[in-house]
Computed example of a mutant assay.
Amino acid sequence: MTSPSVVPDPPAHRYVRVERSGPLTIVTLDRPDRLNALHTAAHNEVAAVLDDFAADPAQWVAIITGAGRAFCAGNDLRYMAEGGSLERPPSGFGGLTSRFDLNKPIIAAVNGAAMGGGFEIALSCDIVIAADDAVFAMPEPRVGLAALASGLHRLPRTIGWQQAMGIILTGRRVTPEEGRSLGFVNAVVPRDDVMTEARRWATLMLECSPLAIRAAKEIARDGLSQPSLEQAIASQRSGAALHAMLASEDYREGPLAFAEKRQPRWQGR
């Protein structure tokens, strides 16, 4: 079986590149001269791309990465110093950090520095693949700022209070191996293999029912907001994604394929 061809988007974007390979969307932050630091126009472009991904039933998984030698250096402080706006869309930094209704999985392929908002983008993804020479930090206090694009909340929830404060309150740099030991990095690979590894994880997801994946993500995310495990379990059948899964053709296709000893043919409906 031949793999699907990669189809680039028409060149309508200035600060981001988008490719689609079958049901996989690849989003590349494309300001390499600024280490992919983002300003208002770039935020809005990425937000629009992720809006399209979220709304497109043919797109099931996304990978976010950076052009050149960085993933994302956070806010474009040079642009800010020049008087430029750093306003963000309602969906947050990079159109992602305040996006709480996206049930499709997103993989961060961290090919280099993930600083400030770049780290926060990675933390907002479901899977983080890091190059072995990548670096993570929230250096905002060193320039008189605070990591207000969700990092101050996501990191403690991911790795615990003391470990998170050890990163947040010092602005220190964290290696990918330390990130993996702390729990916010899934895999560390040589730089040249970052996208290959990210695609491998995406392929594993694409072998699953897309509606089941969305239901699982919605249930897990919403459960974190419940005050107890008991209440999380009691409320897990109330989500729209689960209802969509139970009413779908794919819900019948999975058991049928198992009984017929063949690979399921997922339709996403």
Results as ranks from 00 to 15, higher is better:
L206A: 10
A147Y: 07
K217H: 14
L102C: 13
A164F: 14
T158R: 12
A109T: 07
Q163F: 09
A220I: 11
R221L: 10
V189P: 03
D222K: 15
K217M: 13
K217Y: 14
G166K: 02
W201S: 05
R173D: 14
E140L: 11
V188F: 06
K104F: 02
S98A: 13
A216S: 15
V174C: 06
P210A: 09
L155V: 08
V128F: 00
V110I: 13
R199F: 06
P210Y: 04
Q162I: 02
S209W: 05
D193A: 09
T158K: 09
P190Q: 02
M115C: 10
R191S: 14
P210C: 08
S225C: 13
G118S: 03
A113N: 04
P227Q: 14
R154P: 06
P190C: 02
I159P: 11
E207L: 08
I219P: 05
M138D: 07
E120K: 00
S209Q: 12
N103V: 00
L123D: 15
M205L: 15
E120I: 00
F136Q: 03
D193C: 02
A114G: 07
R180D: 05
E218V: 02
R142H: 11
L102V: 09
E177W: 11
V110D: 11
T203W: 05
E178H: 06
G183H: 10
I107W: 00
D132G: 01
E197A: 09
M115W: 05
M165F: 10
N103I: 00
A131S: 15
A134G: 09
L169V: 08
L211M: 11
I129H: 03
E140S: 13
G144V: 05
A220F: 08
S228D: 02
I129K: 04
C208F: 01
F119Y: 12
G112P: 09
L169A: 15
R221P: 01
D192R: 10
R191E: 11
L224G: 15
A146P: 01
I106L: 05
S98G: 04
A149N: 15
I106N: 01
E177T: 14
A220T: 13
G160L: 09
W201T: 06
N186L: 04
R200F: 02
L145H: 06
L206T: 09
S124R: 01
G223A: 13
I129F: 03
S181L: 08
E178T: 12
E120H: 00
V185T: 10
Q162R: 10
M195R: 03
L148A: 15
R142K: 15
G117P: 05
T97N: 12
G160M: 07
T97L: 11
I213P: 00
L102P: 05
G160K: 06
G112T: 08
W161S: 12
A109I: 05
A164Q: 14
G179Y: 04
D132V: 00
A134E: 08
C208M: 13
L182I: 07
L182R: 09
G118I: 02
A114T: 04
D133V: 00
I167Q: 10
P105L: 02
L155N: 13
L206V: 07
P141Y: 01
E177G: 12
F100S: 02
L145P: 01
S181G: 03
I121A: 09
P156V: 12
S150Y: 10
K217E: 04
T170G: 12
L204V: 08
E218P: 06
G117E: 07
